[in-house]
């Protein structure tokens, strides 16, 4: 697949169809695939594709320095491609002004990333072209919210204690925010200081508020790529919070972010028939 990918990108760059390929290349620091930006046909041999291609590259599409490079071709996995749909729905990208190369994927990471167990997008939807074949036997996918449902077996007090521990470790490096394709605000609410809405101190209180805010600003928008949790230096399992909102969107509104660009986003729209049982 790497060979095919390189040839395809060589042609795209040679023909001037795109000015830059946002793909994966081997980093000099750890030998792992990390994002690279290829601008010359001669450099396409730096591109690779393998099971360690973790990063969701769509996060670069909204960045000024990357936009300045010209029309991009972007390499995406099925899970990454869902973010493209959200970015398009929210008018952050012009889908026609980019070339999307989807990679058929049987799962990434060793051990496998948790998201892969319930993957149902082995072949990226809405790509301009797909390289590779759908994996033959991947076995039935796990139910999508299995990890969350197991967590919810704990009592509320245990859950609170769990998050208290997690929040206590947070150092507020904001890697979770920066790596997230749908966290694209030029100025995050936590960076607003006239007046300040959220404390920037890494206290348990403020970290709690930060994680509630980060998660809820992703409500109905998070596509479950899991990058926030993967990159967290202190191992905070933000995936659980994202899953709880994804499940709520699914159960209450039959909505799964990034699966259908025609459906209006649930936050920002409303329904006269929305059902709940908790309002007096």
């Amino acid at each position: 697949m790497t060979g095919q990918l390189r040839e395809r990108c060589r042609r795209l760059l040679q023909d001037g169809a795109v000015q830059v390929v946002i793909g994966y290349g081997v980093s000099t620091s750890d030998g792992m695939p990390h994002p690279i930006f290829v601008r010359r046909p001669d450099d396409v041999d730096k591109l690779i594709w393998n099971e360690q291609c973790m990063a969701n590259l769509t996060t670069y599409l909204t960045r000024d320095a990357v936009k300045a490079l010209g029309k991009p071709a972007i390499v995406v996995k099925g899970c990454d491609a869902r973010a493209l749909v959200v970015l398009e729905q929210e008018c952050q990208i012009d889908r026609s002004a980019m070339h999307v190369i989807g990679m058929a994927c049987a799962g990434v990471g060793s051990p496998r990333a948790p998201k892969c167990a319930s993957c149902d997008v082995h072949v990226p939807a809405a790509a301009d072209e797909v390289i590779g074949e759908a994996p033959a036997q991947t076995g039935p996918a796990d139910p999508p919210y299995a990890e969350l449902e197991e967590f919810l077996q704990k009592s509320p007090a245990e859950r609170f204690a769990y998050w208290r521990e997690e929040a206590a470790r947070c150092i507020r490096c904001y890697a979770c925010r920066e790596v997230c394709p749908t966290c694209y605000c030029p100025r995050c609410i936590v960076d607003k200081n006239r007046p300040a809405c959220l404390d920037t101190s890494a206290t348990v209180k403020a970290n709690f508020a930060w994680h509630v805010t980060r998660a809820f600003h992703q409500a109905g928008r998070c596509t479950g790529c899991g990058e926030c949790t993967r990159v967290c230096p202190v191992g905070i399992n933000m995936r659980l919070l994202n899953q709880s909102l994804a499940r709520a969107a699914d159960e209450h509104f039959g909505y799964r972010a990034g699966t259908n660009r025609e459906t209006p986003p649930i936050i920002g729209a409303y329904g006269l028939e929305d059902k709940e049982s908790f309002i007096r």
């Binding site: 704990k154 509320p156 994680h211």
Partner: peptide, 10 residues
């Protein structure tokens, strides 16, 4: 949606 998040956080 928010209530579900609060539930998860205990």
């Amino acid at each position: 949606l928010f209530r579900e998040l609060l539930e998860t956080m205990g």
